[in-house]
Simulated scan of single mutants.
Amino acid sequence: MELNAKIYVAGHRGLVGSAIIRKLEEKGYSNIVYRSSGDLDLRDKVQVDEFFEDEQPEFVFLAAAKVGGIVANNDYPADFIRDNLMIQTNVIDASYRNNIKKLLFLGSTCIYPKFAPQPMSEDTLLSGVLESTNEPYAIAKIAGIKMCEAFNRQYGTNFISVMPTNLYGPNDNFDLETSHVLPALIRKFHEAKIENAATVEVWGTGSPKREFLYSADLAEAVIYLMNNYEGTQFINIGVGKDISIKELAKKIKEIVGFNGDIIFNTSKPDGTPRKLVDVTRLNELGWQATISLDEGIKKAYEWFLNNTDATVVAE
């Protein structure tokens, strides 16, 4: 991508899209276009077609998606599969018909089978059953990968797909009902610190292991791949190492400055024992994550303090 190339970032307000825009601007890209969901409903084919015809972007980062945690996925499965299929279909098709130079589609590691061997390599896609709680969302994301592959094969497009591991950072969701584990723990420990609480409860035994990638590292990776990778094979993006929830909780407790105890509620479910992506292909392409988990959590906590009502305990 030339520095003056016209770049469209779909989903620019989210954790991923906002990180991509910050990184593009940091690198000197100056012709970035985006629209809020209020101005452009990506589920509406007519609106998407008009946008592409008017703007004629050269490169597209497709980071827009309907996302949520286990509860949201379980309660609104139809919304998750319908909205994501519509968003992807409209943007990918409009990109093809308007002859964009390259598109990068962002998926999710939930595409992998529930019992995929660890670490999860790209070759395990469609090799087993999915986790039932987020199956509709996963199927939509798998469809996005397959759409990119099919358009490349039939129309000669240059569409690539990436599958990031668990992400965190600025513009993350810190709502305790719908957030993922790392931002939820940041908020829990912060509120306990403000309240001078004696303990913080963490669900499960603390033994499951998870991998976490800071959003700025993800943005660095997708821009690198946009500039350096062409191919039908989708690419995992991660750090290649994981940490137990117990160790994660201890780390966040220390960074936040909570002085009480951690109580593990073993009556609550642990979830999948381990979810780690195989980043061999990504590393062989010449990219590795650089932001450590400690550094990333400190940055995420700083953003939380500066951008939420963090001085007042939630009611």
Rank of each mutant, 00 (worst) to 15 (best):
A5V: 04
I7T: 12
V9P: 15
H12C: 10
G14N: 07
G14F: 04
V16M: 14
V16F: 10
I20V: 15
E25Y: 04
E25G: 11
E26D: 15
Y29R: 09
I32T: 07
V33I: 13
V33T: 12
V33M: 04
S37Q: 13
G38E: 08
D39G: 15
D39R: 11
L40P: 02
L42Q: 06
R43T: 08
D44E: 10
K45Y: 02
V46T: 09
F51L: 02
F52E: 01
F52I: 01
V60P: 10
A64P: 06
V71N: 12
N73K: 06
D75P: 01
Y76K: 08
P77I: 02
A78P: 07
I81G: 04
I81N: 01
D83P: 13
D83W: 00
N90F: 10
N90S: 10
I92P: 02
I92N: 00
S95W: 04
Y96I: 12
N98F: 06
N98P: 06
N99A: 03
I100M: 08
K102E: 02
K102W: 07
G107C: 09
Y112E: 06
Y112W: 06
K114D: 13
A116E: 01
M120R: 12
M120F: 02
D123N: 11
G128F: 11
V129L: 11
S132R: 12
S132C: 06
E135F: 04
Y137G: 10
A138H: 04
A138M: 04
I142W: 12
I142V: 13
A143K: 14
G144A: 05
G144E: 03
E149G: 09
A150W: 11
N152Q: 01
R153M: 15
Q154E: 15
Q154G: 12
Y155V: 04
T157H: 00
N158D: 15
F159W: 04
T165P: 01
D172R: 11
N173R: 14
N173H: 08
N173E: 12
F174G: 06
L176A: 03
T178N: 14
V181G: 02
L182Q: 05
A184D: 13
I186T: 03
R187Q: 09
R187N: 10
E191Y: 08
E201A: 11
W203R: 12
W203L: 15
G204H: 00
G204D: 10
G204F: 02
G204W: 02
T205H: 04
K209F: 14
Y214G: 07
Y214V: 11
E220R: 11
I223E: 14
M226R: 05
N227I: 08
G231I: 06
Q233L: 13
V239M: 12
V239C: 00
V239T: 11
K241R: 09
S244T: 15
I245P: 05
E247G: 14
K253M: 15
K253F: 14
V256R: 00
G257V: 07
P269F: 11
L282A: 14
N283L: 05
E284C: 03
L285G: 03
G286W: 13
G286C: 13
W287N: 03
A289Q: 02
A289W: 00
T290Y: 08
S292P: 14
I297W: 03
Y301G: 07
W303D: 01
N306C: 03
T311F: 13
V313M: 10
E315Y: 02
